[in-house]
Nucleic acid binder design. Sequence first.
RNA 1: GUCCCGGUCGUCUAGUCCGGCCUAGGACCCUAGAUUUUCAUUCUAGUAACACGGGUUCGAAUCCCGUCCGGGAUACCA
Length: 520
Amino acid sequence: MIHSTPRLRFAPSPTGPLHLGGARTAMYNWALARSLGGTFVLRIEDTDRARSTDESLQIILQGLRWIGIDWDEGPKFDGCGGGDFGPYFQMQRLPRYLQAAEQLLASGHAYLCFCSPERIEGVRDAQKAAKSSFLGYDGHCRDLTAEQRAAAAATGAQPNIRFRMPAARVMNVHDLIRGDVEVNTKELDDWVMVRPDGVPLYNFACVVDDIDMKITHVVRGEEHFLNGIKQQLLFEALGEQCPLYAHIPLILNAKGAKLSKRDPGVMSVLEYRDQGYPPEAVFNYIALLGWGFSGDRDVFTRDEMVAAFQIGNVGKAGAKFDADKLHWMCGEYIRRWSAEQCLERARPWLAKSVPEQALAQHGTWLQNVVACYQERVAVLSEFPAKIAWLFADVPALDEAAQKNLAKHEGAKAWLSAYADELQGLNLPPSYPADRSAADRAVALPSKKDAPEPVCEFATPAQIDAATRAFTERIGAKFGHFVHPVRAALTGTDKGPGLFDVVFLLGKEACVKRLRAAAAG
RNA sequence: GUCCCGGUCGUCUAGUCCGGCCUAGGACCCUAGAUUUUCAUUCUAGUAACACGGGUUCGAAUCCCGUCCGGGAUACCA
């Protein structure tokens, strides 16, 4: 290819949500453009008027931005888009297609076809019935005389325009991923370029646009491989050089078939957003579907991906989507955030269980709360349910908690004694009182080897020491003591270290919960 | 049916182009253990693959052929 500046495009049709397959195609195009120092174009192929919707368009635009993909040219959205090769919506380029169609008609590369959809269908049925090795248009109108055309037109039949395929030419095509492949054009029929109403179809509009937009590399799903042959012929007929092609393998569902919007468990990219999947993690995960960063690393940044990405290294085999690994990847990212970052990113989901007042005025406390669960969630939407116990008057006890309370004879006595003990400690106050002094001084979760923070209130480590001394005094085994206390305080048997819990809850709430459980 | 592509642990992959460094590496999942007040995290260990059959070669996961299996295409969708 002699084109100087690499120009790549992602050309979705707005007929449905952007799912992971589309997002990955966009990403590979984007990454190749970025790694080549080229231009990335977003073009909207909206010629299927029956199915294209503005809603889908919006979803695609948002989905791409969310996952971290930006475009230099295309629809203007969120700081992206613009460009001198527009319009970037095919329905706004109709005159250009008609012009190209006229040219092809004049040169004999295309012809008018008056066949009705019913006739086409009949031909196909007959071919199937005859077990024909060829399925497709039979070329009925391929060599109509001027008189025959006039006669057909006189009946009021609206012709579509078909591309005249070479009868039996062996095409040797080079694909950046598949290598050299030979295809005989006799496998392909005379395909429709323009509908009777003047709206172009995919293969035709796509080529005209790729020419006009000076596209140099086409990266797309392998379902387009044969379209590539048709398009190559069209470039030739138009006297243009065709771009480089890379047909990437499909993302497969659990059954091993092409991922479809209707597959269970397969979501629109935006649904991942709404469920709190970190976009960097989703980006990272789908990059791995069909491509490997290196022999020993799976986690990398967008920049690292761009630097390492080579289209020739994309595999040829389809990849199954693995929700488990995506989940792991998300947790991996969340754990790497600072507590501040984590709180900010989790904030949109918190309102489900966190009172407005806490959200607005108790940031330092919430930051500690969230930090305690940072290594316990994979997606952000898990937060509200996990931290709800903090805001209950007295938490509801789940089954495990009830069990732990009933396990040891003297447990209830321990609880009220411990309430007295905590009463005597200088614990931080409980929400909604202002406890910012405590939360500013102590960063949770407590780490074993961390230096002891300077705090005017009892720190988790001090509470720990006091509690161990206390259990010795009352003659309870520490390991036994801890479980009913956790049950009383949090209503469950899981969660942060017990003394982080006590610290977070504060004096009044701890005492209240312990007494309630002791009485219950 | 026809054409095209593919096939390394259950899954995603490294290695394949330029055969020996591969008694096939990493990750997810799973199992066991360590740490610990629970869960989680972290760490350690383990299970587990070159689809099958021929050939070429001193030597094949890597090259060739065949078989099987899988996927894609075959639209007035993209």
